[in-house]
């Protein structure tokens, strides 16, 4: 997409490059629309559509169910929207957690330099050789009970404190605790790329004169990191955040598809696909249960990757891949 002619001396500003990238813009609008539909859509639907019923496996366009119903007689369109909410939510929250860890780690490593940097980078190399999915699965197993216990303790505490609204909130949250577990496990594992990229940038920025000047004026290391480095890192962080979100969503759906991730009553694209795959057979294919979740997932992953690529072309032209 970088259509710079050789005659061009200074690169145009990244945002204007992005605005000229039609695929990236289209992806941005698609994502915005999807996110809005996932957030607002379920609220607008009538309650009787959302609940389970006897109307199992209705094909699309029947009895008010636009996309048909699933095994429990729930409206598939509603399940899809709430699945999009969970998948996108886990993607954003997990990527954000990994961004916080990775940025802090990369900034400290790059700015400290010397032996500290060498040790911290060596540690990421060790972690890189760890089978990622395997450790996400172990973390899920380790965190699952703990998060449930913590929520239950919070519920009891609210009961003690005579705060019924809070108690109800925690009681309702317990069946959905897996969502929190997935965010934590994925976020804890996915930060390595971000740390490496941020460190590389900090190594360059550190030698710039404005940083030296700020240091000479007595600014503390944390002050320099916060005031001068972080603002200069923001676009690159945004770029890799956009590329981490689809990676997290992909891992989440992968685990949910295997039955290790999101569980009923919550849904995600991966768990919907798993449900669809379980009831399929050559004689009576319930194709809508597979096709629509697959479409929703493919469109959003494609859009996220297109947008991320566009951002990278605009703000990090050297890195390529």
């Amino acid at each position: 997409m970088a259509s710079s002619t050789p005659a061009q001396i200074s690169r145009p500003d990244g945002w204007s490059l992005l605005r000229r990238n039609r695929t990236a813009l289209l992806s941005l609008y698609t994502l915005g629309f999807l996110a809005l539909a996932a957030l607002v859509g379920p609220m607008l639907m009538p309650e009787e559509l959302k609940s389970t019923s006897d109307a199992q496996f209705l094909p699309p366009q029947s009895a008010g169910h636009v996309l048909g119903t699933d095994l429990n007689g729930q409206d598939l369109f509603y399940r899809l929207l709430s699945g999009a909410r969970v998948s996108l939510g886990i993607g954003v929250a997990g990527a954000f957690l990994s961004l916080v860890i990775g940025t802090l780690y990369g900034m400290v490593s790059g700015y400290a330099g010397g032996k500290v940097d060498a040790f911290m980078m060596r540690a990421t190399e060790v972690l890189q050789s760890v089978p990622r999915i395997l450790f996400i699965m172990i973390l899920i197993a380790a965190l699952d009970d703990r998060v449930k216990d913590a929520l239950d303790a919070a519920r009891l505490w609210a009961q003690e404190a005579k705060w019924p609204a809070m108690e109800g909130f925690f009681r309702d949250a317990i069946p959905y605790s897996r969502i929190l577990v997935m965010i934590l496990s994925l976020g804890i594992v996915e930060w390595l790329t971000m740390a490496r990229i941020v460190r590389g940038q900090v190594l360059v920025l550190r030698e710039m004169t404005f940083v030296t000047a700020s240091r000479a004026m007595g600014q503390s290391p944390w002050g320099v990191l916060k005031k001068h480095l972080l603002p200069n890192l923001s676009t690159i962080i945004l770029t890799y955040l956009t590329l981490t979100i689809p990676a997290v969503i992909l891992d989440e759906s992968f685990l949910s598809f295997l039955g290790l991730g999101i569980e009923d009553p919550a849904a995600s694209w991966g768990s919907l696909l798993k449900d669809g795959a379980q009831v399929i057979n050559p004689l009576d294919s319930k194709w809508w249960l597979l096709l629509f979740p697959a479409l929703g997932m493919s469109v959003s992953l494609l859009a996220l990757n297109f947008l991320g690529d566009g951002l990278r072309d605009a703000f990090d032209p050297k890195s390529g891949d």
């Binding site: 689809p246 992909l250 759906s253 992968f254 598809f257 991966g270 696909l273 795959a277 697959a294 997932m297 493919s298 992953l301 494609l302 996220l304 990757n305």
Partner: peptide, 8 residues
């Protein structure tokens, strides 16, 4: 091909 998961 990168965006689509193998279980699709």
């Amino acid at each position: 091909a990168i965006s689509l998961p193998t279980f699709i």
